[in-house]
């Protein structure tokens, strides 16, 4: 089966000092990112702020110029802006801040039917289509007359989903789909996303720092640290035996909603270094509990830990040793 989305060695650089520096200095945001998303599946892209996960999503949609590597959508390579324009009918983006992603002067009805107007697709009745899309996400048709600022967080999120679904896309990129939502509303949105996935055969790329979320929704996980993919693999395999010390720390750092599972030690110290001060060797060595000399000088290569499970580390722990 060909992957719906295939990313190979993707790199994104931001040019720096073009006006005064003279030389071609560049800030390296992403490098060597390789991953596949199969049709009908959900890939969880995990990382903290500054890991480059949002940049990666924008690069996939052609909103961020790439400086290396290849992107394929449904087998076709995406190179020029015309290629990206062609796939925009088949992809949709859900924003972390759903309210801000809706034009403040457009009603909900106008917002959810906007994709038809953009792509010049004739619809019999804008009002009818809006009602149909809103019904799909469980909102009443009267909601179409509201403005974004009149919506609650959960309602705005549903409107975002309705707009994303308008053109029946194959791929939905969801950036922190539950951030800022209450637990009960979060569950409703996740259930809605799951229903729509079944009904329309969607594939999701879920970008988040919330491990509980990816464990629940993702088939596969890709963990980013400072613009490098440090571990990819099936969700179950990664949670059962995380190979990278960063992944292990992330899983351990997640607060458990059970006072009997309180951790007493501190899983990870320090902060993600700024992208301007990228550490040499392995990016993670400044915070890694098991770093040795080689980690400070040489960048590790990808090692296979199991079927479809690989980790970028000099000393990958295998499942048997894990923990």
């Amino acid at each position: 089966m060909t992957a719906l989305l295939s990313v190979r060695d993707l790199a994104v650089d931001l040019p720096l000092g073009r006006w005064f520096g003279g030389g071609a200095r560049a800030l390296n945001i992403l490098a060597g990112v390789t991953m596949d998303l199969q049709p009908g599946r959900t890939l969880g892209l995990v990382g903290e702020s500054g890991s480059g996960k949002t940049t990666l999503a924008r690069a996939i949609l052609g909103l961020q110029p790439v400086s290396g590597g290849t992107l394929r959508f449904d087998g076709a390579e995406l190179r020029r802006s015309a290629d990206f324009r062609a796939i925009r009918r088949r992809t949709a983006l859900m924003f972390q801040d759903a309210t801000a992603s809706l034009s403040p002067r457009m009603t909900v009805g106008e917002a959810v039917t906007e994709p038809f107007v953009i792509h010049g697709i004739r619809i019999a009745s804008r009002r009818g289509k809006a009602a149909e899309l809103l019904a799909e996400v469980g909102l009443p048709a009267e909601m179409a007359a509201r403005y974004p600022h009149e919506l609650s967080g959960g309602q705005a999120r549903r409107v975002g989903v309705a707009r994303a679904l308008a053109l029946k896309p194959s791929l939905v990129i969801a950036d922190e789909p539950t951030a800022g939502l209450d637990v009960s509303v979060q569950a409703e949105i996740l259930n809605l996303m799951a229903d729509l996935k079944d009904r329309h055969g969607l594939s999701y790329l879920v970008i988040t720092h919330n491990l509980a979320l990816v464990r629940h929704v993702a088939d596969r996980i890709a963990v980013l640290y400072l613009g490098r993919l440090v571990e990819t693999g099936p969700t179950r395999a990664i949670f059962a035996g995380p190979g990278h010390p960063y992944t292990r720390s992330l899983i351990a750092a997640e607060p458990k909603p059970d006072p009997r599972q309180r951790r007493t030690d501190l899983a990870i110290r320090g902060e993600i270094p700024g992208i301007l001060r990228r550490p040499p060797g392995c990016e993670f060595h400044t915070r890694c509990p098991v770093a040795r000399d080689i980690c400070r000088s040489a960048a590790p290569a990808l090692h296979d830990l199991g079927p479809g499970h690989s980790v970028r580390c000099h000393f990958p722990e295998t499942t048997s040793k894990g923990g």
């Binding site: 637990v183 979060q186 569950a187 409703e188 509980a212 464990r215 629940h216 969700t235 179950r236």
Partner: peptide, 16 residues
């Protein structure tokens, strides 16, 4: 309904 309680992927979460 806290997804952090749920160890493995279930199709649906309980909601209020």
């Amino acid at each position: 309904c806290d997804p952090a309680r749920i160890g493995k992927a279930t199709g649906r979460l309980p909601a209020i």
